[in-house]
Simulated scan of single mutants.
Amino acid sequence: MQRRFLVTLIAAIMAMLSLTTATQASPTFNPVNAANLAASRQGQWGDQCKQFVNDIFREASRGEVALGGGYYSDFVKEGFGRIDPSAAWRGDVIQINVRGYGDRYEPGMHTAIVMDNLGGGWFNVVDSNWQNDEIIRVHQWNPHTYAAQRGMEVNVWRY
């Protein structure tokens, strides 16, 4: 009897912990708004790619999402979860990272916001500095090919 109670208690605690992890993101902020805001700035100056995403999410969430200077760790800290790239949709963030070292910077890394998932690994994205000029653009991109050419990995984040 006591063993059954302990097993039930442990199962309940584990269920509560997984629910807490899955619901860290805010119910009031919709990341689709971040994607739309970013696209509305097309042609304007946007800074480096990661800083652009930081700024857009902070503005669209009215300060609720405060990504910092880290790459991988900041998304985790702010309640984003990694998802399968094939499931990405508007408002998700695609990030090219150093394989096995998510927070280390190396040339060739890139961060973009998904506008549309075109299938087959292709996306319409909005980003800044795609052409090394810190201008915001909407364009098609295959992050898998891009990452493979640089020996990096693709991470897709959902808030």
Rank of each mutant, 00 (worst) to 15 (best):
S18F: 14
S18I: 07
S18G: 09
L19H: 04
L19I: 05
T20Y: 10
T20G: 09
T20F: 10
T20A: 12
T21K: 08
T21L: 14
T21P: 09
T21M: 13
T21G: 14
T21H: 11
A22K: 11
A22N: 13
T23H: 03
T23G: 09
T23E: 05
Q24W: 02
Q24I: 03
Q24Y: 02
A25C: 07
A25P: 13
A25D: 13
A25N: 08
A25T: 07
S26H: 06
S26W: 01
S26A: 07
S26C: 06
S26D: 13
S26R: 08
S26Y: 05
P27C: 02
P27E: 04
P27A: 05
T28K: 06
F29A: 08
F29Y: 13
F29L: 01
N30R: 05
N30C: 00
V32S: 12
V32R: 13
V32N: 11
V32A: 10
N33H: 10
N33Y: 09
N33L: 03
N33W: 00
A34M: 02
A34P: 12
A35C: 03
A35D: 06
N36I: 00
N36G: 02
N36D: 15
N36W: 00
N36P: 07
N36S: 08
N36H: 02
L37V: 01
L37N: 12
L37S: 11
A38F: 03
A38L: 01
A39C: 01
A39P: 10
A39L: 00
A39E: 09
S40L: 01
Q42V: 06
Q42A: 12
Q42I: 06
G43T: 05
Q44H: 08
Q44I: 06
Q44F: 02
Q44W: 04
W45G: 14
W45F: 13
W45S: 15
W45Q: 15
G46L: 02
G46Y: 01
D47H: 10
